[in-house]
Amino acid sequence: AQAWAEAERLLKGFDPETVKSVQAGLARSESEGQRRMLALHGGGSRDGLEIHPNLWAGIGLVRGGAGTALVGSHEEVAERIKEYAALGIEEFVFSGYPHLEEAYWFGEGVLPRLAADGLWRHPHDALADGSVLVPFAR
């Protein structure tokens, strides 16, 4: 519920004129991926933005590129990542809003669940010198 409340807070902060302007610019793109992103939210509609359980297309209203977000509890987000992994996806690029807080949230709550299922291991385990590449995720 907290994650969806945050998504709603972000959505309420999107100025309608900014959304309209961004969407118009993105509509000029020749990218097939961008065309598909625009189709997810009807080129600016704020309705029906949860396009799959825990998958929200709202951020695509104001930015180009990969404009979807996993929204939910630690367990729900881990379950969606497991679904992607089951399809053969091996690498992910994650970010969140606000960035630092979401990095800690993910590292403390999602990564341990993925590790327990053998889908993630800390980079420290692979380094001979003992250095830590992702200190928040230990």
Rank of each mutant, 00 (worst) to 15 (best):
A1Y: 14
Q2I: 06
A5L: 11
A5Y: 11
E6C: 14
A7S: 01
L11K: 02
K12H: 10
G13P: 04
P16M: 00
P16Y: 03
E17C: 05
V19N: 02
V19E: 01
K20S: 12
K20A: 15
S21C: 12
S21F: 10
S21R: 12
V22E: 08
V22A: 13
A24G: 13
L26W: 03
E30N: 13
E30A: 14
E30H: 15
S31E: 07
S31N: 11
E32C: 08
G33F: 13
G33H: 08
Q34M: 13
Q34G: 07
Q34H: 06
R36G: 09
R36I: 05
R36N: 12
M37A: 10
M37W: 10
M37S: 09
H41D: 05
H41V: 07
G42H: 08
G42P: 06
G43A: 09
G43P: 03
G48Y: 10
G48C: 10
L49P: 04
I51K: 06
H52L: 12
N54M: 04
L55C: 14
L55N: 06
A57W: 02
A57F: 05
A57S: 12
A57Q: 06
I59D: 05
G60K: 03
V62E: 03
R63P: 13
G64W: 08
G64L: 07
G65D: 07
G65W: 06
A66D: 09
T68R: 12
V71K: 02
V71A: 03
V71N: 02
G72E: 01
G72S: 05
S73N: 05
H74K: 09
E75G: 06
E76F: 04
V77A: 00
E79Y: 05
E79S: 07
R80L: 01
K82E: 06
Y84Q: 02
A85K: 00
A86T: 04
G88S: 05
G88P: 03
I89A: 01
E90A: 11
E90Y: 03
E90P: 03
E91M: 08
F94S: 04
S95V: 04
P98W: 13
P98H: 15
H99F: 14
H99S: 15
A103K: 15
A103Y: 15
A103T: 14
Y104C: 07
Y104T: 12
F106M: 01
F106I: 01
E108S: 15
P112H: 12
R113L: 13
R113M: 06
R113K: 13
L114G: 01
A116E: 11
A116T: 08
A116R: 10
D117Q: 15
D117N: 15
D117Y: 13
D117P: 06
G118L: 02
G118R: 00
G118C: 04
H124L: 13
D125Q: 01
A126F: 14
A128G: 13
S131R: 14
L133N: 08
V134K: 11
V134H: 15
P135F: 03
P135E: 11
